[in-house]
Simulated assay, not measured.
Amino acid sequence: MTTLVHTADVHLRPDAQERLDALEAVLEAAADLGADVLTIGGDLFDRPADVETLRGDLRNRCFTDLPFEVVLVPGNHDVDAFRGDLFFGDACTVVADEDHFGTWVAPDGDLRVVCIPYCETAGDELLLALADREPFDGTDVLLFHGSLDAPIGADAGEEDTYRYFPVTEALLVELGFDHYLAGHYHGPHLLQFEGGAEFAYPGTPASTRSSETGRRRVVRLETGEGLAFEPLESFHYLEKRVTVTPGREDAVLEELREWVETAVTPTAHPSIVVDGVVDRAETEFAEELVGIADPDWITNETVSVEHVTAHPVIQEFEARLGETDWDDETKEAVWTRTLRAAGRVGSSRGLE
């Protein structure tokens, strides 16, 4: 049985050490998972100019003397970084000849990776060559960097408005691969195509912007099984947003305490945003928040209930709500929602 681990969009650059650390975390995860091959689906570098600065580290620290092979294709960010005959390490194979696709076949003969060098569009000649590829009895995988035309809840860094190597599900299904491993979108996403084929974006192995929240992942594929995500120990942004209403202060504090204890790892960069209305002194609630989490993580937008209910508009609303013939449960729900909304307005620009 062959094991493949997949990553993409590392976006290495000299001034972002956490990304090189993330690549090393990927290599460690691949070794721990018993990988036979690690595939990198493009954008290993953030800019072509970074290759000369970082290639020594990759050659000597990352892509040499590994228990598995590394196979990578360029992406739109770094396609020019792989021009010419460059050596990245004895474990690394770069498929960058835009006139030909490359293949990697497992020693056991049970898995093949067909690698498409990056190009901006899928031309007829490439598609015909892929369709006419040599038959293969094992698990057949397509590796590329591009934009899948599907509702994917992730962005592609700073290039969301432009579609690089655009492909559709119908086009990929017609090619007849068992699995499709891609790069470009920065959030992890797994799709099952018609007929059972699977498609995955692994997302960035280290967050490159604050919108890339959550623990980062790699994709694992074992022959005879489906695709699965595996967590990484690498830099990532975490965000937690909660709204407080009077009487729920302790419940919210306990929710935050549990989140800090279970979700925040040493490689996380957490952010906690708390808004709403508290039925206690604002200073007291602020001190309780600081007792749970690092003050640098916290944005406290709460206001006291006295501040909200003292406003004439809120007082008039409360009086009119009391005159309705709604049941007590409905009135309580409406009042709670009103306090929540008024608290958000009050914390952002003040109740006037």
Rank of each mutant, 00 (worst) to 15 (best):
T3C: 11
T3Q: 06
L4W: 04
D9P: 00
H11A: 05
D21I: 13
L27N: 01
A31I: 02
L38P: 06
D50T: 00
N60G: 09
N60P: 07
T64L: 04
P67Y: 08
V70K: 00
P74A: 05
N76F: 01
R83A: 13
F88W: 03
D90I: 01
A91W: 02
T93P: 10
V95N: 03
D97L: 02
D108P: 09
D110V: 05
D110G: 12
R112M: 01
I116P: 00
C119Y: 05
A122K: 10
L126E: 02
R133W: 00
E134V: 13
E134P: 12
F136N: 13
L142P: 11
L143F: 12
L148T: 04
E158F: 09
E158D: 15
T161F: 09
T161N: 09
V167R: 02
H179Q: 11
A182Y: 03
P188G: 10
F193G: 10
Y201N: 03
G203L: 02
P205L: 04
G214W: 08
R220W: 08
R220N: 01
L221A: 02
E225M: 10
A228S: 15
F229Y: 09
L238T: 10
K240S: 08
R241P: 09
T243H: 09
E249A: 06
E249C: 07
E254A: 12
E258T: 15
A263M: 13
V264A: 13
V264I: 12
T267Q: 14
D275T: 15
G276E: 02
D279M: 05
E288N: 03
I292F: 10
P295R: 10
T302M: 01
S304V: 08
V308I: 13
V313C: 12
I314Y: 12
T324L: 07
T324F: 05
E332D: 15
A333N: 06
L339P: 03
R340I: 06
R340D: 15
G343S: 03
R344H: 14
L351V: 09
